[in-house]
Amino acid sequence: MNGSPSPVLVLPGWQNSDAAHWQTRWEQRHGYRRVEQGDWHWPRRGDWMARLEEVLLAAPQPCWLVAHSLGCQLVAAWAAHTRNADRVRGALLVGPPNTEREDMPPQLHSWRPVVRQRLPFPATVVISTDDPYCAAQRAGAMAQDWGATLVVAGALGHLNSESGLGDWDVGHQLLIALRTA
């Protein structure tokens, strides 16, 4: 690559990522930029997609995406509808939720159905074997549909603050591997 490395955009999930979340820590530690959404509590898929499009088009060069939870569904939905997929070099998708489950809160109903189209850029999906928001088999099927490499991280819950991952250096190594592949 010539010039400066491509920027990394952080895409939190529903209710945003708190101070202890690995995404927030990566922003502070590595200088990545969070895509702020207009409404973290009642996320509308179309609004979140429009915001991601806006940020990507304003970026000086194509970006890498680091998504957690609903941010994974955002990447899949955006990629299926945009004409600007070339603005993304690749994506690390961590803990995708199954928004089609019957017990999902009403705030997430606009995220149905889950977009299952192949992603037009390289991606790695990281899942946990005991994620309360998506069974490992279902998450694995999403990764396959998206054409992504699947990494099973073990029993780490939703791979969020409650998982106690800290800076989650293992996850960051997955991003580095994706960026250098």
Rank of each mutant, 00 (worst) to 15 (best):
W14I: 08
Q15M: 10
D18C: 07
A20G: 12
W22A: 02
Q23L: 15
T24K: 10
R25G: 05
W26I: 13
R29D: 10
E36S: 14
G38I: 05
P43L: 11
G46P: 02
D47R: 00
D47I: 07
M49H: 12
R51C: 09
E53Q: 01
A58F: 04
A59E: 08
W64M: 01
W64Q: 01
V66T: 12
A67P: 00
A67G: 03
A67M: 00
A67S: 08
H68R: 07
S69Y: 02
C72V: 10
Q73T: 12
A77F: 10
A79C: 15
T82P: 01
A85E: 13
D86T: 14
V88I: 09
A91S: 02
L92N: 06
G95D: 01
M104R: 13
P105Y: 10
Q107N: 14
L108M: 12
V114S: 03
V114N: 03
R116F: 06
R116D: 08
Q117S: 15
R118K: 13
P120M: 10
P120I: 13
V126S: 00
I127L: 14
S128L: 02
D131A: 04
Y133W: 10
Q137K: 13
R138Y: 01
R138V: 14
G140C: 03
G140N: 06
M142E: 01
M142P: 00
D145S: 15
